[in-house]
C-alpha cells in the first residue's frame, strides 16, 4: 500500500507521495460538463422539433382550399371524397374518448384496489413478489394485447353476448377497452402503491391508536393523505390510454363513427394516423396533411394530461413539508 506505516502522522508524510491529478483527468473534467449538457439537450431539441414540425404542417393543412378549421374541429364526418373531402375530428375524438373512458372503468378501480392491497394488507414477502409481477404486465408489447383482444377477448364476447341477441362485430370498442384497461393497470397500481406507502407511518399509528380498523385506516386516513398522488396516477393512465395505438387498431378497427354501442367498430385518433400512413394518401394531399393536424391535437391532449398530473403530484409533495 502507499502509506509507509499505518500510524504515521500525515503532517510529516513527504510531499513526493502526492502526485496530484494527471493532465488527462483535468481535460476530462472540463469536457464532461458540456458533454452532459449536450445529452440533456437532445431530448429538449427533439421535443421542440416535433412540436415545430406538427405545428407548421398542421398550419399548411388549414391553409388548404378544401379544408376549413371549423369543419375540422366541429365536423362529424370523415369522407375520402376526391372533390370535397371532409375531415371532421369529432368521430376520432369520440373514439379516443370511448377507449380512455372504457379502459379507465377497468383500470382505475382494479389498479387502486390492488395498490391498497399491496401497500396496506399484503405481507411484506408476498408484496415483494406481487409488485414486480404486476409491473411485468407493463412490459408486454402492446401489439400482443391487440391480437389477444382480437383472437381471445372478442370471440369470448361473441360467445357470451350473441346468445342474448346482441351482435358483436369482429372489431369492437368493448374488447379494446378491456385490453387497454388491463394494459394500464400497472401504471395505476405501481404509482399509487408508491404514494400510499410514502404516507408517514405515524399517521397510520395515530389512527390505529384511536381504535380504527385496518380498513378505516386504509380508506379514511392513508388514501385521502395520498389522494393527489393517486389522482396523478389516474391521469397518467388515462393519458396512456389516449395515446395507445396498436392494441386499439387491432381490436377496435378503423370505422370513424359517433356511437354509444360498444359492440361496434370505432376509430381513434391514433388508429386514424395508422390507417392514413398505411394507405394511399400522396404526399402533400389534404388527407396526408390531415395527419399532422390530428397528431397535433393528440399531442395537445396528452400534454395537457401530463402537465395536469405533474401539477397534482407537486401539490401532494407540499403536504408533508
Amino acid at each position: 500500500m502507499s502509506a509507509p506505516t499505518v500510524d504515521a502522522d500525515p503532517a510529516v508524510l513527504p510531499e513526493t507521495l502526492w502526485a496530484g491529478r494527471s493532465r488527462m483527468l483535468m481535460i476530462q473534467e472540463t469536457l464532461i460538463g458540456p458533454f452532459l449538457f449536450f445529452c440533456a439537450l437532445v431530448t429538449v431539441v427533439t421535443t421542440a422539433g416535433i412540436v415545430l414540425v406538427l405545428g407548421t404542417e398542421a398550419f399548411r393543412f388549414f391553409q388548404m382550399p378544401e379544408v376549413s378549421a371549423v369543419d375540422f374541429f366541429f365536423g362529424t364526418k370523415i369522407e375520402d371524397d376526391p372533390v370535397s373531402p371532409r375531415f371532421g375530428l369529432l368521430p376520432l375524438l369520440w373514439g379516443t374518448f370511448v377507449i380512455a373512458f372504457g379502459s379507465s372503468i377497468v383500470a382505475l378501480p382494479i389498479g387502486l384496489l390492488s395498490a391498497i392491497y399491496l401497500s396496506e394488507y399484503a405481507p411484506r414477502r408476498l408484496r415483494s413478489v406481487l409488485k414486480p409481477a404486476l409491473e411485468l404486465l407493463a412490459g408486454v408489447p402492446t401489439i400482443v394485447y391487440g391480437y389477444l383482444a382480437l383472437l381471445l377477448v372478442t370471440p369470448v364476447l361473441k360467445r357470451l353476448l350473441e346468445p342474448l341477441g346482441l351482435r358483436v362485430e369482429t372489431f369492437n370498442s368493448l374488447s379494446a377497452c378491456l385490453v387497454v384497461g388491463v394494459m394500464v393497470i400497472p401504471m395505476v397500481s405501481s404509482l399509487s402503491e408508491d404514494v400510499l406507502s410514502a404516507v408517514p407511518r405515524g399517521l397510520r399509528e395515530a389512527a390505529y391508536g384511536l381504535g380504527a380498523t385496518k380498513f378505516e385506516v386504509s380508506t379514511r386516513i392513508v388514501l385521502p393523505a395520498a389522494l393527489s398522488g393517486v389522482t396523478a396516477s389516474f391521469i397518467l393512465a388515462i393519458s396512456r390510454a389516449v395515446g395507445e395505438t396498436m392494441a386499439v387498431v387491432l381490436a377496435a378497427g378503423i370505422r370513424p363513427q359517433i356511437t354509444l354501442n360498444p359492440l361496434t367498430s370505432i376509430e381513434t385518433m391514433t388508429a386514424y394516423i395508422v390507417a392514413v400512413t398505411n394507405g394511399d394518401a400522396s404526399e402533400g394531399s389534404a388527407k396526408y396533411q390531415s395527419l399532422f393536424a390530428v397528431g397535433l391535437s393528440l399531442f395537445a391532449i396528452t400534454l395537457v394530461l401530463n402537465i395536469l398530473s405533474g401539477l397534482v403530484l407537486r401539490r401532494y409533495r407540499e403536504v408533508y413539508n
Binding site: P200, G202, L203, E205, A206, A207, G209, I221, P224, A225, V319, Y320
Partner: peptide, 9 residues
C-alpha cells in the same frame, strides 16, 4: 406519539 402526527385534515 413522539413526533406530533396530526392527520392532514
Amino acid at each position: 406519539f413522539q413526533k406530533p402526527n396530526p392527520f392532514p385534515k
